[in-house]
């Protein structure tokens, strides 16, 4: 991306010196950074609405079928879910350190923090994979071959459908985040960022925190339905 920009700027034959990342349709770097930040926040709003449809379906059926929800929730492994929650919160912390390092212009620290964030993200995905595999072995994948012993098998299937939609979509966001991180880490390694311009790191950070926050909602909603000892 920046390569193209440098080439583009050279193409354009600007007489005055400007930052290689400065796109020519912006008047100033500040304007460019403000636009990126606003754009990212708006994007996150669209993401909230995107997950919102699933949360709406979740809420409706939870009110209709509380017993089935408790029954389905008990099928999920609270230890693995808990572990993943800790892993993701830790990755948000390392991400924040990564952004801070980029902001203060510490190249290797940025790279290291980003690598650690990616490692934690990968851990999450591996754990998730084993959770899915366990479900698959038990025949708990909704669809024609769905198999479940219990009083509310049909409604548990709805629960598990939502479980797979919500966690699957979340995992997809993690994978996209992982891809983003790879690019950002490579750029950081190449020394592209400086205290004047580290917008990509900051934006990826926002995205990563958003994905974490989604999980902070998913974990209690999916894993902890019947753990309070009392439900209506």
């Amino acid at each position: 991306m920046p390569d193209a920009l440098v080439a583009h700027a050279a193409d354009h034959g600007h007489a005055h010196a400007h930052h290689p990342a400065h796109q020519h349709h912006f008047e100033t770097m500040e304007q460019q950074a403000e636009a990126a930040t606003l754009g990212m926040w708006i994007f996150l709003v669209t993401e909230v609405m995107f997950f919102g449809g699933l949360f709406m379906a979740y809420m409706l059926y939870r009110v209709w079928y509380p017993e089935a929800w408790a029954e389905g929730s008990r099928e999920l492994d609270i230890r693995l879910g808990g572990l993943n929650t800790v892993v993701l919160i830790a990755s948000s912390l390392t991400m924040a350190f990564g952004v801070r390092s980029a902001q203060t212009g510490k190249r290797m620290a940025t790279v290291n923090w980003l690598l650690l964030t990616m490692a934690l993200g990968l851990t999450f995905l591996v754990v998730k994979f084993f959770e899915y595999k366990h479900k698959y072995d038990l025949g708990h994948i909704p669809g024609a071959n769905f198999h479940f012993e219990g009083a509310h098998a049909d409604q548990v299937q709805i629960f598990l459908s939502l479980y797979f939609c919500m966690t699957g979509l979340h995992a997809l966001h993690m994978i996209i985040g992982f891809g983003l991180m790879s690019v950002i880490t490579w750029m950081a390694w190449k020394g592209r960022f400086s205290p004047e311009w580290y917008t990509p790191v900051e934006m990826s950070g926002l995205y990563w925190h958003f994905v974490d926050i989604v999980w902070i909602f998913l974990f209690p909603l999916l894993y902890l339905v019947d753990r309070a000892g009392h439900y209506q």
């Binding site: 909704p142 049909d154 709805i158 459908s161």
Partner: peptide
């Protein structure tokens, strides 16, 4: 996903709406 993979979010036979 409901059509292709057989998920049951809107399926009345399962109690879906």
């Amino acid at each position: 996903l409901e059509r292709v993979a057989g998920l049951g979010i809107f399926n009345p036979a399962l109690g879906g709406d």
